[in-house]
């Protein structure tokens, strides 16, 4: 009898349930998530049902008013436009990022690390500085117009900055690495013999790509889409700096509630709806990806 307990301790009955040691290791992360994710989200949720006071404080009552306002056509239109811009950004990121990610994943290990480093180099500089660099490139007497003029491609400088095109350029630039990295992760795991098998069975490069490579790297595309689409909807700095703040995105509207209109409850309601959209996107991608997951 005395020897038995030691044996059972060594052979846990349910290996999936973390023991106290695992909890001890998880504790910092759990506390972090609790303090900086769960609690703020809960506050946001509570605020979204409150009223504002004249200073911009929050009066604790219960009202659906803020949600009624979210579904005002003014804001719905902005939601739709934000989704459109974010969707366009995501599509462009996939189109530009996929070949890059695939090429990196198929390169030799040494070269792969160098190329990955290049993908991550932009993160070494502040996001704002990089955005200002784009302003320098796109402005009326900027680098791009100068180049095009000197090569006689155009006779008049193009009005590139402060246009929707500039916003999309800025968004794509900011989020491209977040598309490349997950696709790279998927493509790197892709077994080369599967591609050979496709060729062996008569698939040329195009059909091998569309019927084998794309479906098998779908988890990476899905993860990249999530990482690009969702933050791109809420982005406000790029629309301000590169779009001239002419056409508000939902991120700008939320920002305004906190920094200009002093209406935290309404801002919170917009934030909650925004999070629900995130969750919805996630669920859709998950359920569509489930078939391919294993």
């Amino acid at each position: 009898m005395s020897a038995v307990p030691a044996a059972t301790e060594l052979a846990p009955t349910d290996s999936r349930r973390p023991g106290w040691r695992a909890w001890a290791l998880l504790a910092p992360m759990v506390l972090w998530l609790l303090a900086f994710v769960v609690v703020p989200t809960a506050i946001l949720l509570v605020y979204s049902f409150c009223e504002r006071d004249e200073v911009g404080g929050v009066i604790f009552t219960f009202t659906w008013e803020n949600y009624h306002r979210v579904f005002d056509p003014v804001y719905l239109r902005i939601f739709v436009r934000s989704v459109y811009y974010a969707g366009l950004t995501t599509v462009i990121c996939v189109v530009l990022g996929y070949p890059v990610a695939y090429y990196i994943a198929r390169a030799s290990v040494e070269r792969r690390n160098q190329l990955l480093l290049l993908v991550m180099v932009p993160f070494w500089t502040s996001f704002l500085i990089r955005t200002y660099a784009w302003i320098t490139i796109l402005k009326q007497d900027g680098l791009l117009n100068g180049l095009l003029l000197s090569m006689n491609f155009i006779t008049e400088p193009l009005g590139l900055l402060y246009t929707p095109t500039a916003v999309v350029i800025g968004l794509v630039y900011a989020y491209l690495p977040f598309m490349i990295l997950p696709i790279y992760g998927s493509a790197e795991k892709l077994d080369n013999s599967l591609i050979e098998a496709a060729h062996d069975l008569g698939a040329g490069p195009v059909r091998a790509f569309s019927s084998v490579i794309v479906p098998l790297t779908m988890p990476g595309i899905a993860a990249g889409t999530l990482l690009v689409f969702v933050p791109a909807i809420g982005m406000f700095a790029i629309t301000d700096l590169m779009g001239g703040a002419k056409v508000p995105m939902i991120g700008n509207v939320i920002q305004n509630q906190f920094l200009q209109a002093r209406d935290w409850p309404f801002g919170a309601a917009l934030g909650v709806i925004f999070m629900l959209m995130f969750a919805l996107t996630y669920v859709i991608l998950q359920s569509r990806g489930a078939r391919h997951a294993t």
Binding site: L194, E196, D200, G202, V212
Partner: peptide, 16 residues
């Protein structure tokens, strides 16, 4: 390979 009338059984099977 996709123009040759041969087919291969792979060591790892390479099933999709």
């Amino acid at each position: 390979p996709y123009r040759r009338n041969v087919n291969q059984v792979f060591q790892s099977y390479a099933l999709f």
